[in-house]
């Protein structure tokens, strides 16, 4: 429902931005995706800490689910950003600070997921992934600072509202907020789906184990 409302507002309700034209509407997907991708990353790290601390599989599964869904949104951020950048900046990609940060985030997610794929059968996999998730999250602030000092040309929409890049029309703000909410819900929903699948798998493992134990016990007699 919220998604439909967001789509309606993005395509029909909100006025077209004067300088950039129709392509500016992608912004209402781009920003929420970015927010959700970062949130996913945070969630990976938090569940990593909780897993190492409490040792419950639930946190491991949550971290895995968050990384997978976060990776999808992070990819969307890069794609929508590129589509917007081509007509506006004239290039698909520049080494601007936020682009670079997002790309690095994407690479870190990729590394984490590759590790999960490579270590999932090992009983250590969960612990290793938790550690890498935490280390990656620690890296993010350093990345942000260093890359920002390195260079930046990205429009600072929400931060400074300078020049022609701000959101002049109040309808734009409303649309952005609705889109944010819609993407947050979408993220949460996808996360729950993946999470439930992983929990289910864990449950299957537990039941298989119980079955194997019962069979072995039957043979004992």
């Amino acid at each position: 429902m919220l998604m439909v409302a967001a789509l309606y507002m993005v395509f029909l309700y909100v006025p077209t931005e004067a300088a950039q034209g129709i392509v500016q509407r992608i912004f209402y997907f781009h920003v929420p995706c970015a927010w959700v991708a970062f949130a996913g990353f945070g969630l990976v790290a938090i569940s990593g800490v909780l897993y190492l601390w409490l040792g419950q599989d639930v946190w491991d599964d949550l971290g895995y689910a968050a990384a997978e869904v976060g990776m999808v949104f992070c990819t969307l951020v890069l794609i929508t950003g590129s589509i917007w950048a081509k007509p506006i900046w004239g290039v698909w990609w520049t080494w601007d600070s936020r682009l670079t940060t997002t790309l690095l985030l994407w690479l870190l997610y990729g590394g984490y997921l590759m590790l999960r794929a490579a270590a999932n059968e090992s009983p250590n996999g969960a612990r290793l992934a938790a550690v890498v998730g935490i280390v990656a999250a620690l890296d993010v602030p350093v990345v942000i600072v260093s890359v920002r000092l390195w260079r930046t040309i990205h429009p600072a929409v929400l931060v400074t509202k300078q020049g022609g890049h701000g959101l002049q029309d109040p309808r734009m703000v409303t649309t952005l907020l609705v889109a944010m909410a819609a993407f947050t819900v979408l993220f949460a929903w996808l996360l729950m789906l993946r999470f439930a699948t992983l929990r289910m798998r864990a449950r299957i493992d537990r039941l298989t184990l119980r079955l194997a134990l019962a069979e072995a016990a039957a043979q004992d007699i």
Binding site: L104, L107, L108, G110, G111, Y112, M114, L115, A118, A119, E121, S122, N124, G125, L128, V131, V132, V135, A136, D139, V142, V143, V145, S146, V147, W150
Partner: peptide, 29 residues
């Protein structure tokens, strides 16, 4: 830390650069 991680995986040391390089970028810059 990361080579201890990669040592436990099927891919072994192949995974190390994939993890280490992006993490090291800020220090590299």
């Amino acid at each position: 830390v990361l080579s201890a991680v990669s040592g436990h995986t099927r891919m072994g040391d192949l995974i190390l650069p994939v993890l280490a390089v992006p993490l090291y970028v800020p220090a590299l810059i």
